[in-house]
Design a protein around this nucleic acid. Structure first.
Lengths: 156, 156
DNA sequence: ATCACTTCTTGACCTAGATCAATGCACAAT
DNA sequence: ATTGTGCATTGATCTAGGTCAAGAAGTGAT
């Protein structure tokens, strides 16, 4: 664990990197964000004084988020210690992970992509719940889901 | 902690209730969802076998979610024990809380409401970051935020 | 078999917010 | 003072997805 000073605009972490760092903001302001395939930024969170900010990715998986400084800041950097995670805490972290991805997708991906991601991630659920509930989970109407499925099946 | 059987459609928890229960699904399928002010359901999560589902609200705050059974299910019910939470775990739970609200708002609230909620929740951040970053956090374009702010200021 | 009920689909139309382009404005650097 | 550079605003137009209304098809109960 060490304390460092960063200047406005400085990038602490890039999407795609392997990363196991946690940043605690002593003073200043950081943000984390993703960049979609059109190059557009989507801010996931702001972290002012006393906040903790990190990409919630497991140690061996490349992370999704960029982290940079919006103001000159003083922060402490800690290494994540996965060995010390109780299974109980591990499941909380995993849940945060899922939520992080969901928030980012809701902000940056169109309904089709959210649907496809859902199908890949929970193929079993699809079989078990009515379509309108999938729509409801995706944040669209049943009508929209119906049309979008039609579109997908047409294109193959 | 006890094990109970519920039938399809049965409601385990209602929005607005005080609640400190955690449900673990042994078999079957549960879901949690919110209902917006137009009466529309928004599913927050599905919980098949071995999943844990709960409204992530503190013990003394009414919860936002309904939980019910999509299939006949067998589940175990546990009381949350807030006294046993380490401060470390507490902060994870708090973060999940924030994410839960954000997901639900992204699905069910128009941009104006999301903006107003942000202003109330993080009044200090507003002062410190450029408007386009607020827009990026809210999941809209800077142009849309500009117009929506104009609209708000007009109406008072 | 029939009725009631729910789900899915389709069509016509509407709207929140996106996109693109132009303008204005503040502040920093020369 | 002047030239940039980044940000906010405004206007015109476009589009993904919403809304509303009407079938169609499946399923269960009587």
């Amino acid at each position: 664990m060490k304390t460092i000073n960063v200047t406005k605009g400085q990038i602490l972490q890039r999407s795609g990197e392997l990363n196991t760092k946690v940043f605690t903001v002593e003073s200043g302001l950081l943000r984390s964000y993703s960049i979609d395939n059109k190059g557009k930024e989507h801010i996931y969170m702001f972290a002012p004084e006393n906040w903790i900010i990190t990409d919630n990715c497991e140690g061996d998986i490349p992370c999704d988020l960029y982290i940079d400084a919006i103001e000159d800041s003083t922060i402490t950097v800690t290494e994540k210690d996965f060995t010390k995670l109780t299974s109980d805490r591990k499941s909380l972290v995993k849940r945060i992970n899922v939520l992080q991805k969901r928030v980012i997708m809701l902000m940056s991906s169109p309904a089709v992509e959210r649907y496809q991601h859902f199908v890949e991630t929970y193929p079993d659920i699809i079989q078990r719940v009515p379509q309108r509930m999938i729509a409801s989970y995706l944040g669209i109407t049943p009508e929209a889901l119906s049309r979008l499925r039609k579109e997908i099946s047409k294109n193959k």
